[in-house]
Design a protein around this nucleic acid. Structure first.
Length: 914
RNA sequence: GGGUGAUUAGCUCAGUGGAAGAGCGCUUCGUUUACACCGAAGGGGUCGGGAGUUCGAAUCUCUCAUCACCCACCA
């Protein structure tokens, strides 16, 4: 075995990944024992248009850790991969590409040809994200890769639609929806995000009809009661959206608003339009907002729609799907009014142009009452980033209220567990207030709604046109042109990928799935809907555990987004530091329930960790450390060897416990602390002198133990750092199987933890630390070999010391250890909790410095003793605290006392010796 | 406006009732034949402020401050 000084990740990663793939290591059930438990994770399918961002890297690292861990435990593992067809995103990408290449537009191509273009784009560019996941080391069963527009998946989607339709959970209706004028489609509530804008609040005067006037209060006394009035023949309304006035069909005032009570039931004349509209009383009007009188535009505002329904006001749509004004020939608009000629010049204008022009008219014609700057939130489409328009159209809805119960019960009863708990709260909160889900989209790329209409407008929901025609008695039918919301199909991801509606073996074996690993940003979009839909369709939960992880944010805590330019490209990090380093970093940052901010320095630190273990293996190799035939760590005689075996077992336990509880960071940190802090820093240094002894039993045992511990380190680390560990696995022995399929260590009950050896070695460690510290403080040259005298030791300590003398000599760089002497004058005293030592250094030490050192240590010890003493003397402590805490405190005070005694007498000696 | 979370070392973050931690950075020393992507020894924190519960609080409660995110809000 010959190893370079460092692991060449860029060379090795591709090669190792190919080995895994070619050997079928990722396949469902690979390495499983007959009759093993199954373990299934569904990947949150990335968009086909997607490029791997740091959030994907994080999400998939956690999944891969779990998957590899279970696979090594020989469970029957399936990690189901796939991509989402991402309706809007993909259609947008392809349209943009067509435009860039000077090709005909979507509309010019027509539906069928455009869809061909999308498919060929998907064939060409849609697999990129898979390659990127592979770079990361993701061990998905790629042979089962699915796409949400696959034929089989498509069939499942249509069947679900029909099932839900037949059960009355899906209906069509003309309702106000959030309309995205850029993509010209409806979107659902949760695809809308509020954006704060600095706008203007305009006030308009609408004339009262029939020569009506009223007294409007304009001044108030100190108590706030009106004291001055003005006679008005108009009513002032305030709006941030003047263009919607064209569709006004009423004015609402609060029923208790004294200012306007004489006006309720009267009418005003709408400027420009000339429509006569009523003043109605409605609780919605808030006397403290605006002027207290609010214009009502039922067709372009959700609240106004409700008011309109209550007051019987008409809803007049004044825009087309592009959010341009449509007035000419708009029968609804023209009905019952004669617009001024100026009004018709607005026809066809974009809503914002119309807004400007209307304000200009108002000013010119004297009905602009005023304007004030106003900051308010405007709803925007989350993909188009343009302001959405409440818009009255025919759409399909899932009556979510009818299917939400089972989804809530499943979590309440604990059949599905959401962790951390806080997200369960969020989940309930959203489901309790759920609104109908608008699932139709006026797009082409997606699952076309399986409904046909006859000439009379009757609808037939069927899985095929032939079936629909049969239902319609052979009438001429036309298919609904709309497609389904992408989240409708991804809501079926668990059963859809496992072959439903067929009764496949995979469905039998892996459903319900075990864990869903996801970010909280799609808790509503995806998780809640999967719960609802799976339960509605197959009456079974889709997963037993939902692990919700943090979002990766930039250094300012902002969500990373291309538009913000704060994206960290995980592949750049992979190229620079290797996939293992990136994975390990992400795992250590997976503390539950928090956002995480990524600092590149940490990736570098964990890259160094990889190099560290690489070199530990090198050291072992250079010393010919191999496990001897039939080596059993339980037979070890040497205390250090027993000790490190016990530490290994503890590390394994810590990792298992952490992963059982999805504490990825605890698992990663436990491995790190063990491999670097225990194994490399201490054990390997102990092993060096032992191995140097020549060919004895002690040497063989130590060499075997080194190899044994390394093997366990590689196994423990493999789920986190699969590449470097697989590489080292191959060079450290003749292997029957690759590490990915090696047996996860199960040693909890093997009785390998030896308390006696632990105590012994921990004592040695403390002594070495103390000697090193003193050496530095006394500025003893590192190369200088000095003598160590044991002054006061009990019999047990004396034995531990003599057995491990060689370790102390080497690590503390002392020449020999002499026992039972009396401290010579001007020596340096070393006090540990198990004995007193000294370094005779009369010619080297500065007595006053040594005195200061001792005094400082003594002071600290006395301080501690006092604190602990007070605690023990408090009767409430003795009675209130648990037994073991009291015991521990007693032990601590004892140890500190014996240390203090040593320091005290050393100080005394120095003084008298002076 | 409603909700959730955060505030711990210079920076990025762990730690949820019993001795303040990690990585990076900083200081000093080091060619001890695995590793300078290293080793050794250090410095650095009244755990955002205040009050309370408790024998004991970074941890639980209340309160204030600041920040972030989610939901609602286009008069």
């Amino acid at each position: 075995m010959k190893l370079e000084k460092k692991f060449d990740a860029s060379e090795a990663e591709g090669r190792i990944y190919r080995q895994w793939e070619e050997s079928g290591a990722f396949k469902a059930g690979a390495n499983s024992e007959p009759g093993a438990d199954s373990f299934c994770i569904m990947i949150p399918p990335p968009n086909v248009t997607g490029a791997l961002h740091i959030g994907h890297a994080f999400n998939n690292t956690l999944q891969d850790v779990l998957v590899r861990w279970h696979r090594m435990r020989r469970h029957d593992v399936l990690w189901q991969p796939g991509q989402d067809h991402a309706g809007i995103a993909t259609q947008m990408v392809v349209e943009r590409e067509l435009a860039a290449e000077g090709q005909p537009s979507r509309q010019e191509l027509g539906r069928d040809e455009f869809l061909n273009q999308v498919w060929s784009w998907k064939e060409k560019s849609g697999g990129e994200i898979i390659n990127q996941l592979k770079r990361l080391g993701a061990s998905c069963d790629w042979s089962r890769n699915r796409f949400t527009m696959d034929e089989g998946f498509h069939d499942a989607v249509l069947k679900v639609f029909r099932d839900l339709y037949d059960k009355g959970f899906i209906y069509r209706g003309k309702r106000l929806v959030n309309w995205d004028p850029h993509f010209e489609t409806a979107i659902s509530d949760i695809e809308v995000e509020q954006v704060e804008v600095n706008g203007t609040l305009w006030r308009f005067r609408y004339s009262l009809e029939n020569s009506l006037t009223y007294a409007h209060p304009i001044s108030f006394d100190s108590k706030g009661n009106p004291s001055g009035w003005e006679e008005r023949d108009y009513l002032v309304v305030a709006t941030t959206r003047p263009e919607t006035m064209l569709g006004d069909t009423g004015i609402a005032v609060h029923p208790d608003d004294a200012r306007y009570e004489t006006l309720v039931g009267k009418t005003v004349r709408l400027p420009l339009v000339g429509r006569s509209i009523p003043i109605v009383a409605d609780e919605y009007a808030d006397p403290t907002k605006g002027t207290g009188a609010v214009k009502i535009t039922p067709a372009h505002d959700f609240n106004d729609w409700d008011v309109g329904q209550r007051a019987g006001l008409r809803a007049i749509n004044v825009m087309n799907p592009k959010a341009e004004m449509t007035l000419e020939g708009n029968l609804e608009f023209l009905d019952g009014c004669e617009p001024a000629p100026e009004a018709l010049t607005l026809d066809g204008l974009d809503r914002y142009d119309a807004r400007k022009k209307i304000v200009a008219f108002a000013q010119a014609q004297g009905w602009l009452d005023g304007a004030d700057p106003d900051q308010h939130a405007v709803p925007h489409g989350d993909r188009s980033k343009t302001a959405v328009e409440p818009y009255l159209t025919n759409q399909w809805f899932v009556d979510a209220k009818k299917i939400v119960g089972a989804a809530m019960d499943a979590v309440k009863s604990g059949r599905t567990r959401i962790i951390p708990d806080q997200y369960a709260k969020l989940y309930f909160n959203w489901l309790e207030n759920i609104e109908p889900w608008c699932i139709s989209r006026q797009l082409w790329w997606g699952h076309q709604i399986p409904v046909w209409y006859d000439e009379e407008g009757n609808q037939y929901c069927a899985l095929s046109e032939a079936e629909a025609r049969a239902m319609a008695g052979g009438r001429v039918l036309q298919r609904d042109p709309d497609v389904l919301d992408t989240w409708f199909s991804s809501g079926l991801w668990p059963i859809g990928t496992l072959g439903w509606p067929a009764e496949t073996p995979e469905l039998q074996r892996y459903f319900p799935t075990d864990v869903l690993v996801t970010g909280f940003d799609i808790l509503f979009f995806w998780v809640a809907r999967m719960m609802m839909m799976q339960l509605a369709v197959v009456e079974e939960i889709p997963f037993r555990t939902v692990y919700v992880h943090a979002l990766v944010r930039d250094e300012d805590g902002k969500k990373m987004a291309k538009s913000l330019g704060n994206v960290i490209d995980p592949l750049e990090l992979v190229e620079k530091y290797g996939a293992d380093s990136v994975r390990f970093t992400l795992a250590t940052m997976a503390a539950m329930g928090r956002d995480l901010r990524l600092a590149e320095s940490r990736v570098e630190g964990y890259r160094n960790f990889g190099t560290k273990i690489w070199n530990a293996v090198r050291l072992a190799g250079l010393n010919g450390c191999r496990m001897s035939q039939g080596f059993d760590p339980a037979d070890n005689r040497e205390a250090v060897n027993k000790w490190i075996v016990g530490e290994t077992v503890r590390a394994i336990e810590a990792v298992d416990r952490a992963l059982d509880n999805f504490r990825f960071n605890d698992a990663a940190n436990a491995i790190y602390a063990f491999v670097w802090g225990r194994f490399c820093d201490w054990y390997l240094e102990f092993a060096k002198p032992l191995i140097g002894l020549g060919s004895t039993e002690r040497v063989e045992e130590t060499k075997s133990t080194v190899a044994w511990v390394i093997e366990h380190c590689l196994k423990l680390l493999h789920p986190f750092m699969p590449f470097i560990t697989e590489e080292l696995w191959a060079v450290t022995g003749e292997r029957e199987r690759m590490l990915i399929h090696a047996d996860w260590p199960q040693l909890a009950t093997a009785g390998l933890v030896d308390e006696q050896a632990d105590r012994e070695i921990n004592r040695i460690i403390r002594l070495v630390e103390e000697i090193r510290s003193v050496r530095t403080q006394m500025r003893i040259p590192a190369g200088a070999r000095i003598q160590l005298l044991a002054i006061k030791l009990d019999e047990a300590s004396r034995q531990s010391l003599s057995k491990n003398e060689i370790l102390v000599q080497r690590l503390a760089r002392v020449e020999r250890v002499e026992d039972g002497g009396i401290a010579p004058p001007d020596s340096v005293t070393i006090s540990v909790d198990w004995g007193e030592f000294c370094l005779p250094l009369a010619d080297v030490i500065d007595v006053s410095e040594e005195r200061a050192r001792l005094a400082k240590a003594l002071g600290k010890a006395k301080e501690d003793i006092e604190i602990l003493q007070n605690r023990l003397q408090n009767p409430k402590f003795a009675s209130g605290a648990p037994e073991h805490v009291v015991e521990e405190t007693r032990g601590r005070v004892e140890r500190r006392r014996s240390e203090a005694d040593v320091l005290q007498s050393a100080l005394y000696r120095l003084k008298t010796g002076d």
